[in-house]
Simulated scan of single mutants.
Amino acid sequence: MNTPPYPYPQIAAAIEHLVTQQQAQPTLAELAERANLSPFHFQRLFTEWAGVSPKKFGQYLTLDYAKQQLRNGAVLSAVADEAGLSGAGRLHDPFVRIEGVTPGQFKQGGRGLLLHYGVFDSPFGPFVLGSIGGKVALLHFLTDDNVPEALLTQAWPKATLVWAPTLVRPLAEQIFPSVGAGGTSDRPRRLAVLMRGTAFQLKVWEALLSIPEGHLASYDQIAATIGQPTATRAVGTAIGANPVGYLIPCHRVIKKTGLFGGYRWGSGRKQAILGWEAARRETALLTHEPGLLTGAFD
């Protein structure tokens, strides 16, 4: 992906201002200035990226919205459908399958394995993607001071690194299709993710897959889901250690107070992903049943 199709740096600057100045309700002109664009071009760019206007996007990032999401509850695996949707209309079809390495493989740290990798662009900035045997082994969003090889070695210390962007690109494009309007291309039905972690970590990461796109869960809810309601702190540690961003949706877990909390790849990126997913969910509902939601694009 030599030519980034996503304007994330400009979008991120606007979202940061939108969040920090939420009470003041920033104007379109103020947000456009943060993105170094004219109001007209910013409005068009943002709407192409998010699928909704900046004003609507901001509503997804409020404390009241987050609290309402948590109060709705039952967002985990007990809920198979949403709003009566089924089949092709489902908002959330699990397309990620976690495969944990054996205890012996865990100790070996990837010894004897080839870890192919490349750096690509996404709606949320550049990321390094590592693959072992055609399975996703790492997805790490990058900042200016990140060294992709160091991140890969940290996750798989004994694996042999092979720079192979052409080989890995099909996986990257399945995860983040190069399309506008909120990335509405169909995703693959199943995508295997190879995870190197303890039994407890794997249990937590599996639980994260049960949170549908556009929904939120608290650390307490995840702890209860895995049958260890008093292990909230340990759950938070496991979530923070997740080596596969976005696909294993640790970004959908927030504090029970409604505050978004931290994120391994930055709180600003977490806000961007959550708002983007909420917009996709609302768009899907509107597409399935016009008039189901009103004012979605105010």
Rank of each mutant, 00 (worst) to 15 (best):
A29Y: 10
L31A: 03
L31G: 01
A32R: 02
A32V: 05
A35L: 01
N36Y: 13
N36L: 14
N36Q: 14
N36K: 14
N36M: 14
L37F: 10
L37A: 12
S38T: 03
S38C: 00
P39I: 05
P39A: 06
F40P: 05
H41C: 12
F42E: 00
Q43W: 14
Q43V: 13
Q43C: 12
F46S: 00
E48C: 08
W49F: 02
W49D: 00
G51D: 01
G51K: 00
V52G: 00
S53R: 04
F57P: 02
F57R: 03
G58Y: 03
Y60V: 00
D64A: 14
Q68D: 15
N72M: 15
G73H: 01
A74R: 07
V75D: 08
L76R: 10
L76S: 10
A78E: 08
E82V: 06
E82Y: 06
E82W: 06
A83R: 05
A83T: 04
G84R: 00
S86R: 11
A88I: 09
A88V: 07
A88G: 08
R90I: 03
R90K: 12
L91S: 00
L91T: 01
D93E: 13
D93I: 09
P94F: 05
R97D: 13
I98Q: 07
I98M: 12
E99V: 15
E99M: 15
E99P: 14
V101L: 07
V101N: 02
T102C: 03
P103F: 10
F106E: 13
F106A: 14
F106Y: 15
K107W: 15
Q108C: 07
Q108E: 15
G109M: 11
G109F: 08
G110L: 03
R111P: 04
R111I: 09
G112P: 02
L114N: 15
L114Q: 15
L114Y: 11
H116G: 04
H116W: 07
Y117H: 09
G118Q: 11
V119T: 12
V119M: 10
S122R: 07
G125M: 05
F127E: 06
V128W: 04
L129W: 05
G133T: 02
G134M: 06
K135V: 09
V136M: 08
A137V: 06
L138G: 01
L138E: 03
